[in-house]
């Protein structure tokens, strides 16, 4: 028993040490975001000698976080990021759950081939379609926020269809059959019976896609990198494009950029973790 006790103490020490190591980047980010330029130059590790919030005001302004150059919220990077994320995730949840349900309930060659195509597409790296997509989307007039949402539906479809497909396979079919006998159309069966019972997997699919879309950089960079449409990650280049870096402003900007994600994480932590576990069992 004595040996077991000392083993636990060692485990606690390892645990505390590892946790500190893991949070240290957040510590560095926070303390330096509150420093003046001079203060940061003196030391990057110490607490600020004079705490200042001015960095946040300047950084928010440079990021167009809450308003654009015409003082409108509707062109701000926060609005753009929110609009694209919420729009994409909503249509992904609606359309991929519809398709996955029909693919599970229809046993035919066409149905199998379509499902196989979605799965096989997971092997395709973004780079393989990047250049033709840039050319094609320009031609089709998709290089705007709505076009981008449409693209996220295309790119998000593989994993989402796959996750819904796996979940729906485990649902009993008898209730749906009874509803059909009672005279419901497939449309009503889906929206009144199936869609509500998919709630756990909706949350999983939504959580995974929120993270992917919110953080995405390359697709918006290629499609909507112009004034009034930019998302938060695109704006970040303001601090890192030039030669002399203003680290105190950059730290404040980065901290502002990760706050929404951290809030989302604490609200949806359980579902995110469930989602990963579910997604991993493929």
């Amino acid at each position: 028993m004595e040996r077991k006790k000392s083993l636990r103490i060692i485990l606690y020490i390892i645990g505390i040490f590892t946790s500190l190591l893991y949070v240290s980047p957040f510590y560095i980010l926070i303390v330096n975001a509150f420093k003046t330029k001079k203060d940061l130059f003196v030391s990057t590790l110490k607490l600020p000698a004079h705490w200042t919030v001015k960095n946040f005001q300047v950084a928010a302004d440079k990021l167009s976080l809450l308003w654009d150059n015409t003082s409108s919220f509707w062109g701000s990077s926060l609005f753009n990021s929110l609009f694209i994320t919420i729009g994409s995730v909503t249509i992904i949840v609606i359309f991929t759950s519809m398709a996955a349900w029909m693919l599970v309930r229809t046993k035919s060659k066409v149905s199998t081939i379509i499902f196989f195509m979605f799965i096989a597409a997971m092997l395709v790296p973004f780079q393989a379609v990047m250049l033709p997509l840039v050319a094609l989307s320009g031609k089709l007039g998709l290089q705007n926020k709505f076009g981008l949402i449409f693209m996220y539906l295309g790119f998000g479809s593989s994993l989402s269809v796959f996750l819904y497909h796996g979940f729906i396979k485990g649902l009993p079919i008898s209730i749906e059959e009874a509803a059909i006998v009672d005279g419901c159309s497939p449309w009503q069966v889906f929206w009144k019976i199936v869609f509500p019972t998919l709630k756990p997997i909706h949350i999983t699919v939504a959580a995974l896609n929120v993270i992917a879309v919110w953080n995405d950089f390359l697709l918006p960079q290629l499609m909507i990198n112009q004034k009034g449409m930019q998302t938060i990650p695109l704006k970040m280049f303001f601090f890192f494009g030039g030669y002399s870096k203003q680290w105190h402003l950059a730290m404040a900007g980065l901290l502002l950029a990760i706050i929404p994600v951290i809030i989302f994480y604490f609200c949806a932590q359980k579902h995110i973790i469930e989602g990963i576990t579910a997604g991993a069992n493929k």
Binding site: F95, M117, F118, A121, V124, A128, V129, M130, P132, L133, L136, L140, F150, M151, L153, G154, F155, S157, S158
Partner: peptide
């Protein structure tokens, strides 16, 4: 969406 965004460009 899948066809226009993934299959055709591929």
């Amino acid at each position: 969406a899948f066809t226009i965004i993934v299959i055709i460009p591929l």
